[in-house]
Design a binder for these strands. Structure first.
Lengths: 209, 209
DNA sequence: GTCTATACCTGGATAGAC
DNA sequence: GTCTATCCAGGTATAGAC
């Protein structure tokens, strides 16, 4: 890892815990193991470090989602992604992947926390936060559930409402268990309950109570 | 309003937008219209201002919920609160009240934003945030929906999963439209779709499609 | 309870030797 | 590209006059 990359790494960690203003250039330099003045050979200002994280890293987030096995838009157009949600087990697996990616993936979780904390300071940060953690997920799932309705697997009239019903509990539990590393099991059980409830509600071939 | 109260007011506004570290004592004093040194006659430190907001204001939040017409635990025990959710219209009204309270009430929204932004800095802040905006709501609604199942108005087996299904979209849309004052109508329509979907799913006497 | 003045420190950033 | 030295602005907080 280059020094520049290490600066980004340590800055992301510090920003995600102490916030942008709560983190000093010296804090970052100390974490990297260099003097604060040396840091200015790599970035011309503290703000440039932050902007680099936001700009380069929102792209990286999308790449990482794919590596993590979250289906993408292309697969969806080909109708391939639908197999990711065919059974309740695959739906559970999908929700767990999204949840654990944002909650425990070293990069995604720090990035999410940083944006959560800094969203009110700057309109652009808010836009990135909103796009990355709200719009993208719901757009994809709307298409997914729309396709599942078309194929007769789920019933329902409003795929977007379904997508919000699927994703909102993930988002909610993410925020609820954000700082409870000892309760990941509990959070996964809560998530499972929600997905099972979701599946019970929308799947066509279920038996009714 | 006393000077002390005005300090709290202005500090809350500034903290909710620029964050704790992003706000200086001089910023607060300027907003109040006094010199920063004068401020120390009312609070012995910047941190004491913040702590006062958090401590006194979490109580005030609960009082305000009641004033705002959100039913409380006592009503629930008496079975009275259930009338707040008897019809789809009353359920819509309940969801709108919770949503608009957290989104647009001057005090509640600033308090929520401040805690959202500062939650990672300090464990205690996180606890308050979690309790106020996640646990309380779900605990109440779990009891509410449990009672509605018992009275045969809703069907379902897992009142807590229902409560999360009801509240998570509120929480999600709250975060999504947090900085879109021009889109309140849009957000209320999105909320309405979710509540109607919720009602359609759980209400017993509906006709099925 | 407000002011002016000031102490003291930390923060971001630059210059220049190596 | 790292260091030391330094600058300057701004931050928190206190002292003391009014």
């Amino acid at each position: 890892m280059t020094t520049k990359e290490r600066i980004i790494e340590e800055a992301l960690t510090l920003f995600s815990v102490k916030g942008y203003h709560g983190t000093s250039v010296k804090n970052i330099a100390d974490a990297v193991g260099i003097k604060d003045s040396s840091l200015y050979k790599h970035f011309k200002s503290k703000k440039e470090i932050f902007d680099t994280i936001v700009l380069e890293m929102s792209d990286r987030m999308e790449l990482m989602s794919k590596e993590y096995g979250l289906p993408d838009d292309a697969e969806l157009e080909q109708g391939a992604a639908i197999y990711a949600a065919l059974t309740m087990e695959s739906l559970l697996s999908l929700s767990r992947k999204i949840f654990l990616f944002y909650l425990t993936d070293s990069f995604a979780s720090r990035f999410r926390r940083m944006l959560t904390a800094e969203q009110y300071r700057d309109r652009e940060i808010y836009q990135v936060y909103r796009h990355t953690f709200m719009d993208s997920a719901v757009v994809y799932q709307t298409a997914l559930f729309g396709e599942m309705i078309r194929q007769g697997i789920f019933h329902g009239e409003d795929p977007e409402a379904m997508a919000v019903n699927f994703y909102a509990p993930i988002f909610f539990l993410l925020n609820k268990y954000d700082q409870e590393p000892d309760k990941i099991e509990e959070s996964l059980m809560a998530l499972e309950r929600q997905v099972k409830e979701f599946d019970r509600i929308y799947r066509k071939d279920q038996r009714r109570g």
